[in-house]
Amino acid sequence: MPLIELKNLNKTFKTKTSSVRALNDVSLSVEKGDIFGIIGLSGAGKSTLIRCINLLERPDSGGVIIDGEDIIKLGEKEIRQKRKNIGMIFQHFNLFNSRTIAQNIAYPLRYGGLTDEQIENRVKELLEIVGLESKENGYPSQLSGGQKQRVGIARALAANPQILLCDEATSALDPKTTQSILALLKELNKKLGLTIVIVTHEMSVIKAICNKAAIMENGEVIEQGAIFDIFSVPRRKATKDFIATTSNLHKVYDLLEEDSPALHLSKGETLAYFSYIGRAAVESLISTVSVMFDVRINIIFGDLDLIQGMPMGGLIVIIGGTDANKQKTIDYVGQKGVKVEVLKQYD
């Protein structure tokens, strides 16, 4: 049974002059222990969607099933109780500026039947988890962005929730800090078995820590599934565009467009794009085919990456040789699971 199941959610925002369909029949499911990414451009409806999970936003219709229970049907008071099981962090951290770091983290614990001593111990524990032991008596204004988000995470986790929602939680941070926050989230996912839902507009965030993702466009989920499947076989243009932002290889199309000297071919040469997933044997494959079929293979540039621990990469190569041998090369490489796209032939 999925931990979070969103069923046919619809939401329209109306203003005096227009109405915007923020969610259009959106369904998705998140299993316990997932780090689930929701990506889309601004206005795609992703923030509305994540806010439906704790009902900060009420959908016009549909079901929000958490741990088997449709929380839309609950009363206000019961919903508030459920929210204690769903932590949330925000783009602008939303810390309470008049409270110390420790008081911020203790916020969800107050009035919950705990003694002051229990709260103090729990706060210490949380400060340690997020690596801010020395800051407990400081105020949010004294912290850097990354530290503020760490406080946000500690506060969101104080009541021991099963789920953590991250609404553009790294969008206001520099790349290095983003990496450290993502590493922390991944660690929490592993250590505590925390289920995490992340909304972002950066594919690099999804690539770094998610095991599943949904791509949103104009209020609809246009693709969803395991990260590896999405990256290896993207079906929709929006998905391909997002994936392209995480690799250098899409630059080849720009270079072709501007007729770059780097891609000028001599007689008998062919420009091709090799892409492959799940295996790192391409380099040896290149030396193999050059011997087998008497072709010269010149690597112009390439990109290698790990997606969920699996290698994924692409190479832009110039193959030189007779037409027959080049065709044999392409066929052979294709049989070995490498996708080949011929970009340009000498003419």
Binding site: N54, L56, R80, Q81, K82, R83, K84, I86, G87, M88, F90, H92, F93, N94, L95, F96, Y107, P108, R155, A156, A159, L165
Partner: peptide, 11 residues
């Protein structure tokens, strides 16, 4: 945002 954070914590 502060209000929203409080709401998300069940206040």
């Amino acid at each position: 945002g502060s209000i929203e954070a409080a709401q998300s914590m069940g206040t």
